[in-house]
Write a protein that binds this DNA or RNA. Structure first.
Lengths: 198, 198
DNA sequence: CGTTTTTGTGTACAATTGTACTTTCTGCAA
DNA sequence: TTGCAGAAAGTACAATTGTACACAAAAACG
C-alpha cells in the first residue's frame, strides 16, 4: 500500500499502475501481491479504508488545534492554515484521495464520497454544538456543511499542483477557501425558510 | 478522439487507455495513431481543447434558455434542470472532463481549470450585467462565481454515478445544487467589506 | 492531369504485463 | 523440537504493449 501511494505521489495515476510496478517498488516478487490483495481494485478499496482512518485522526487534530481558539473570526483562517500544512505533510494521501474522488472505480469513488459525508456530519455536529446557525433546517444545514467540505476538496487539488515555493499563489488559494467558507456561513445565517428552495 | 471518449464513457480511466486500444476502437492500425498525436498526453490536451468548444456552446444554450426567464426566483432551478439534461446527453464529455480535473497530467488539469476560470468570468459578467450584487468587491465576486462553478462540477461527478432511473437520488442532487447556489448568492448579497476576509 | 502531402497499412521486436503453479523461507505455538 | 500457516520466491507463458521503419493508398492542390 505504501508503494502504491509513493508511485501515485510520484505523478502516476492509480489506475495506470501495474501490479508488477508496485511489487517492484517494494522489492518483492510480483506474485506476492496476491497474498494481500485480489486485484488492483481490492488494493484501491483497502487504501481508502486505511487512509480514511489517518484522515479522521488528522481532522481531529485540526479540531483540537482550535480548542482554545483565539478569536472566533480567526477560527476559519487558522483551521485552513493548519489543515493545508497537514496536506503538505501528507501529499501522497491527498493526491490519491482527490484522484480517486473523480477517477477510480465506482466502488472507490463511493467509498471516498461516504467519507466526505462523514466529515459533513461531523461539521453539522460542531455547528449544532456551538449553537451557530440555530434556525437552519436540517436539509439546509447539511447542504451548507457539505459545501464547506467541497470547497476544501476542490482547493486541495489546486494546492497540490502549486509548488511550495510559490508562496503568493498558495496564499491566493488559502484566501479563497476562507472567503468561500465565510460566504457559505454568512448565507446560511441569513437563510429564511420561507424562501422556498425548489 | 471519439474512440477515446467512448472508452472513457465505457468506464475506463483515460490514463489507463492504451494507444492500441484506441486505434482498435476506431478500426485502424496502431501506428496510425502517431499521424495525429505525439503521445497520449497530446491526445488528452487535444480532447480538452475540442471539448471546451463544445462545452462553451452548451453553456451558451443554457444561458439562452433563460433569456425569457419566467420568474427570477426560478432561474437557478431552471438552469440546473436544463444543464443536467445536457450532462446526460453528453456523458462522455463530462466523464472525461471531471476525471481529468483531478486526474491526468499537470498540463491537462490546468487546461481544464483555466476553462473553469473562463466560465467563472462569464458568470461574473452576467452578474454585473444584471446588477446583481452591485456592492461586492471584485475579489469576493470572483470567489463567489467560482464557488458556483465548483458546486456544479462536484455535483456532476455524483450525477454521472447515479443511474437515470433513480429519479429520487437525482432530485436530491439537483436540490443540493440549487440550495448551495442560493446560499452562495445570499451570502454574497449580505457581505460587507468591513468583515475583513483575512 | 501529375505531384506532393497526408493518412493508413504491414511487419517487426523487445519489453512489460497478469497470473497459475510449485517450492522455499520465516516466525510462532505446541 | 516439531509442525504449520502465512509470506515470499521461482518458473513459466501467453497476451498486450509502444514504437521504429518501409511502403501504399488517398486527398489536396497546382
Amino acid at each position: 500500500m505504501l508503494a502504491a501511494l509513493q508511485l501515485v505521489e510520484g505523478g502516476q495515476h492509480f489506475s495506470s499502475l501495474s501490479i508488477r510496478e508496485i511489487t517492484r517498488q517494494t522489492g518483492v516478487v510480483p506474485t506476492s501481491f496476491y497474498r494481500h490483495f485480489r486485484d488492483m481494485d481490492d488494493l484501491g478499496l483497502a487504501l481508502v479504508d486505511e487512509l480514511s482512518m489517518i484522515l479522521r485522526q488528522l481532522m481531529r487534530e485540526v479540531r483540537e488545534s482550535q480548542a482554545n481558539a483565539a478569536k472566533p473570526e480567526q477560527l476559519i483562517r487558522h483551521s485552513v492554515d493548519f489543515f493545508m500544512q497537514q496536506v503538505d505533510a501528507n501529499r501522497g494521501i491527498f493526491v490519491f484521495l482527490t484522484q480517486e474522488l473523480t477517477g477510480g472505480s465506482v466502488a472507490v469513488r463511493q467509498a471516498i464520497r461516504s467519507e466526505l459525508n462523514f466529515f459533513t456530519n461531523e461539521l453539522v455536529l460542531d455547528i449544532n454544538r456551538y449553537r451557530i446557525l440555530p434556525d437552519l433546517s436540517r436539509e439546509m444545514l447539511e447542504a451548507a456543511a457539505l459545501l464547506v467540505i467541497q470547497i476544501v476538496s476542490m482547493a486541495i487539488v489546486e494546492w497540490l499542483d502549486t509548488a511550495q515555493t510559490l508562496a503568493s499563489q498558495r496564499e491566493t488559494i488559502r484566501q479563497r477557501i476562507v472567503r468561500q467558507t465565510q460566504l457559505t456561513f454568512l448565507g446560511a445565517s441569513h437563510w429564511k425558510e420561507k424562501e422556498k428552495t425548489v
